[in-house]
Amino acid sequence: MSDTRITPVQHRQPNTVAPFLVPLVVGGLVAVGLGVYGRVHAPTGYAIGLAGFSGALAMKAWLTTGAFLLALVQLFSALVMWGRIKLDVPWIGSLHRWSGRVAFILTIPVALHCLYALGTQFDVPRVMIHSLLGCFFYGVFTAKMLSLPRRGLPGWTLPVLGGLTFVALTGLWLTSSFWFFTTIGVKL
């Protein structure tokens, strides 16, 4: 007698980037759209500020610093969630989601001020890099958020998009907050 057990056929998702195209295209459109808007919009020069800060630059420096510190929490919690750091904390997913939400919210007044009052600028290298990183940050963040609910994506998708988001925010912090604190000083 032969063994006639029926084994289920394993269907593997092809390792393709096709499901990734929509988030990537939409993220690219967001980045380009912000850059174009920032370039063609005539900067008003008027500061958008929040109460409690001495000025718009101080507000931007502190909010970006808060977002950057939360991005460090994001990096740590992602390393735990992906098993790169061995910790058994059942709330790590919630920490990751909420630190990301708050970090993103902190960037909104900064981005609004940059786009509305200053626009995209290319005359000073630091400011040009900052402008390009700002557009890239929102584009890659959009691609990451749109990729979260999608099935069939390659396993590297979220770590790469999360890493690029972290790198962009780090670059934004270095070209704005770090510059502000080391050039103008630590002010509220």
Rank of each mutant, 00 (worst) to 15 (best):
I85E: 03
G100H: 04
L133S: 03
V80S: 02
D3Y: 07
A67F: 01
H113F: 07
V140Q: 00
F53D: 11
F181G: 09
Q121F: 04
L63R: 02
K187A: 15
H113Y: 09
F104N: 01
V32D: 05
T182Q: 07
I108W: 00
G152R: 05
V124A: 11
S176W: 09
V110D: 09
L161W: 00
I6D: 11
S131D: 04
L69K: 06
R126T: 12
G93W: 02
A168Q: 06
P154V: 05
L72N: 01
H41K: 08
P23E: 00
F141W: 13
I129A: 15
Q13L: 13
L146F: 04
H11P: 11
K187D: 15
G162M: 09
G45F: 00
C114M: 14
L172I: 05
T44Y: 00
H113K: 10
Y138C: 07
V25N: 07
T4E: 14
S99E: 10
A31V: 03
P125A: 13
G66W: 02
L79C: 15
F137A: 04
V17T: 14
K60Q: 15
V22E: 11
V73T: 03
W82G: 11
G134W: 01
G152C: 08
V140D: 00
L161V: 07
V36Y: 01
P154Q: 08
R12L: 14
T182C: 05
V124I: 12
M145W: 11
Y138W: 13
L87M: 15
V102N: 03
W173L: 06
L161D: 01
V140F: 00
V127M: 10
Y37E: 06
F136V: 05
R101C: 09
L115Y: 07
G163A: 08
T4A: 10
L188E: 02
G152P: 09
P109D: 05
M145D: 08
V160M: 12
S176R: 10
V25A: 12
H11E: 14
G100V: 07
A61Y: 03
H96Q: 01
V22W: 06
P90Y: 14
L63W: 01
S2I: 10
L106G: 04
D123N: 14
V127P: 03
R101Q: 12
A111V: 14
V160C: 10
H130R: 06
L133T: 03
G55L: 05
H130A: 03
A71K: 04
V127H: 04
